[in-house]
């Protein structure tokens, strides 16, 4: 039981990180469907840098950096050339899948050392809970702190309100003097960084060797997660645990020979998202808008 819960928590980290980043990007009005690609890029950069520098911490840094860099491609096209965000995001994932396959080729068969576990004094001694929550790697703690920080940042801080404002009505934001494009560039960059770290988590903690396409759809789940969470950080945390739990159930189910197909569980995150979307749609009709209004719309300075 204990180990099952730990596995669920750890499995949730990549989608939580990627989801956190995508949440900020979408709050600013940019729909980046390239999450899967950015995670792959982060994964291969992390793995490669650990092989070169021998230090798993370098993996976090280079994973994040790679995520930022590849998100710049997306930003350049969608924000400055005003291309269609959906098509560009899909393109980014396809591009990154190929690119990481190429870069990762020499890494095949090599194994890296994982991120060390950090036991938090006193807290890790609490029976049962201690070993579940407080004996993890640094990226685990970071991901939790990050989503809490994002929550308060979005609601309380001036910059958080500005990001929400840009996502709500970019023309208004422009007309009162905010640099819409720069703000979006930064938000998408943050999204890239988080997706990169989320991707890095996979080789650094979960499976310490390279295989092509090793994110295995986690980027898509992260995208669904943001919608499921209706763009609210704490719901995102909850959703990440649920989606992580479902993923683990697949393996448990297969191992124990449960009488329903694993494909059904595979499908669950998306099914849950569709249900969440329907609920959001009903709420929206009653005047409670959760979706950032200018999500996916290119901003044209109308001179």
């Amino acid at each position: 039981m204990e180990s099952l819960l730990i596995t669920i928590l750890v499995t949730s980290v990549p989608i939580l990180l990627a989801g956190t980043g995508e949440l900020i990007a979408e709050k600013s009005g940019v729909l980046n469907l390239g999450v899967e690609g950015m995670m792959l890029t982060g994964a291969v950069a992390a793995l490669g840098s650990v092989l070169i520098f021998g230090n798993p911490l370098a993996g976090i840094f280079f994973g994040a950096l790679a995520g930022i860099l590849i998100s710049l491609i997306f930003s350049f096209f969608t924000i400055f050339l005003m291309t269609n965000q959906v098509a560009t995001g899909l393109g980014l994932t396809i591009f990154a899948t190929g690119l990481t396959g190429l870069i990762g080729e020499p890494f095949v068969g090599k194994t890296i050392s994982s991120l060390p576990k950090i036991e938090i004094i006193f807290l890790s001694d609490i029976p049962f809970l201690g070993s579940i929550f407080f004996k993890h790697d640094i990226l685990f703690y970071l991901s939790i702190l990050l989503i809490i920080a994002v929550h308060f940042f979005l609601i309380k801080s001036r910059y958080g309100i500005i990001i929400r404002a840009v996502g709500d009505n970019h023309d208004s934001a422009h007309s009162i003097g905010y640099p819409v494009k720069i703000i979006r560039l930064l938000c998408v960059g943050f999204g890239g960084m988080c997706a990169g770290m989320g991707g890095a988590y996979i080789p650094l903690v979960l499976t310490p060797h390279w295989s092509e396409g090793m994110t295995a759809g986690k980027g898509w789940i992260a995208l669904a997660l943001v919608v499921f969470a209706s763009w609210l950080p704490f719901r995102l945390l909850l959703g990440a645990l649920i989606f992580g739990g479902i993923t683990i159930l697949q393996f448990v189910g297969q191992a124990r020979g449960w009488p329903f197909p694993s494909q059904f569980l595979n499908m669950l995150p998306y099914l849950v998202t569709i249900i969440a979307l329907s609920i959001i749609s009903i709420k929206t009709r009653s005047g409670n808008t959760l979706v950032p209004s200018s999500l996916g719309k290119p901003f044209l300075e109308n001179n």
């Binding site: 309100i161 929400r164 404002a165 709500d168 009505n169 023309d171 208004s172 934001a173 007309s175 009162i176 808008t289 950032p292 209004s293």
Partner: peptide, 10 residues
């Protein structure tokens, strides 16, 4: 030049 999803004070 208002933001419908934000409160008046925001």
């Amino acid at each position: 030049s208002l933001f419908p999803a934000l409160s008046v004070s925001e």
